[in-house]
């Protein structure tokens, strides 16, 4: 997903083209044929891509400038940037943004630390390594709908497993916690789900990166008498730094994209306390039919995601991708 190779990729094509120069046709005709073929290969896929992805992206901005009339026969009113102004004065929008931030504050560091920890522990010859890796990855491949319903069930106040463990078994809390009934505890529950579901992914990416660290570096450090922890800090960590950056960017973007778990676990409630940007957008569009305002919210989200990804890439310098 990172544009590292695209810039210098035309060399092979050029080479391939040059070799066919043995044919008697003049270069211009051959070029034309090549271009024609290229477009033919591109056409069906790119047409669908343009129709279902590019056009909607542009259209989203257009809609966000209108009070968009949904019912046939009524006219849309041009509002300019009024939907955006509305968002900036809408306390629920800001709350949703804060909730998204809080969600990331839980899920991003925890997935990095726990994923790295698991990867480091698995980066050695040890029994049942493949089994561990598989089991950690299991939540990643499981549907968001299913895990959201499971976690809603786990966090039920009376009779839920989490409270049963915390209250009835370990007596860590004096009363059952009303997890999904208050803003912050609900956001914590959502964050726990996000971490649980995602940690296997960051672990696999980190593990692949760690295995790419040249053994010679480790051995050299070992000869110098460095302990395992020092070796990790001095050798492994710098080597996988670009991957850590890359994972961070994707986790932040993923954090902004959280929707299904919120929709199914709290529905944005109680009373809009746990709305995140996307759940609030969905509600505005598909419960209140305010497509213009919904589009404005999602466009703002896209801008934020763009700015953050660019800033992070700048900050961590050119991330080499995990390849």
């Amino acid at each position: 997903m990172l544009p590292t190779r695209s810039t210098h990729s035309s060399s092979s094509a050029r080479k391939g083209g040059a070799r066919t120069a043995g044919s008697p046709r003049p270069p211009s005709a051959r070029r034309r044929r090549e271009i024609l073929h290229a477009y033919l290969f591109l056409l069906p896929g790119f047409a669908l891509f343009a129709l279902t992805i590019l056009y909607p992206i542009v259209r989203a901005f257009q809609i966000s400038l209108f009070h968009w009339a949904i019912v046939p026969g009524t006219a849309s009113t041009f509002l300019g940037l009024q939907n955006y102004a509305h968002a900036l004065h809408d306390p629920i929008f800001w709350r949703a943004l804060a909730n998204s931030g809080f969600y990331m504050a839980i899920t991003v560091p925890s997935q990095i630390v726990l994923g790295l920890l698991a990867a480091v522990m698995l980066d050695a010859r040890m029994p049942a390594r493949a089994i561990f890796r598989t089991l950690y990855y299991l939540p990643v491949v499981t549907s968001w709908v299913v895990v959201s319903l499971v976690f809603r069930y786990l966090f039920i106040t009376e009779g839920g497993l989490v409270n049963w463990i915390l209250h009835d078994t370990l007596h860590l809390v004096p009363t059952n916690i009303n997890w999904l009934g208050a803003r912050w505890s609900a956001m914590v529950a959502l964050g726990i789900l996000g971490t649980w579901k995602g940690v296997g992914w960051s672990m696999v990416v980190f593990l692949a990166a760690l295995q790419g660290v040249p053994k010679a570096l480790h051995e050299a450090a070992a000869v110098d008498g460095a302990r395992a922890w020092d070796r990790f800090v001095a050798v492994s960590l710098p080597a996988i730094r670009p991957v850590v950056a890359f994972v961070t960017v994707l986790l932040v973007i993923g954090g902004f994209n959280v929707f299904i778990s919120v929709y199914l676990m709290t529905g944005g409630g109680p009373v809009d306390q746990t709305q995140v940007l996307l759940s609030y957008m969905y509600r505005q569009a598909f419960s209140f039919l305010d497509f213009g305002y919904g589009s404005a919210i999602s466009f703002l989200l896209t801008l934020i995601v763009f700015v953050i990804s660019l800033a992070q890439m700048r900050l961590f310098r050119r991330p080499a991708g995990a390849s």
């Binding site: 695209s6 090549e34 271009i35 591109l42 790119f46 996307l278 969905y282 999602s298 989200l301």
Partner: peptide
């Protein structure tokens, strides 16, 4: 292949990858 617009089209694909899927839901 080399063809006019190649890097623009590829760039569009890469940029679209960064756009949240849900943003396109309404359109």
């Amino acid at each position: 292949f080399r063809f006019p617009g190649r890097s623009i089209l590829f760039g569009l694909i890469l940029i679209a990858l960064m756009v949240p899927t849900m943003m396109m839901l309404i359109p």
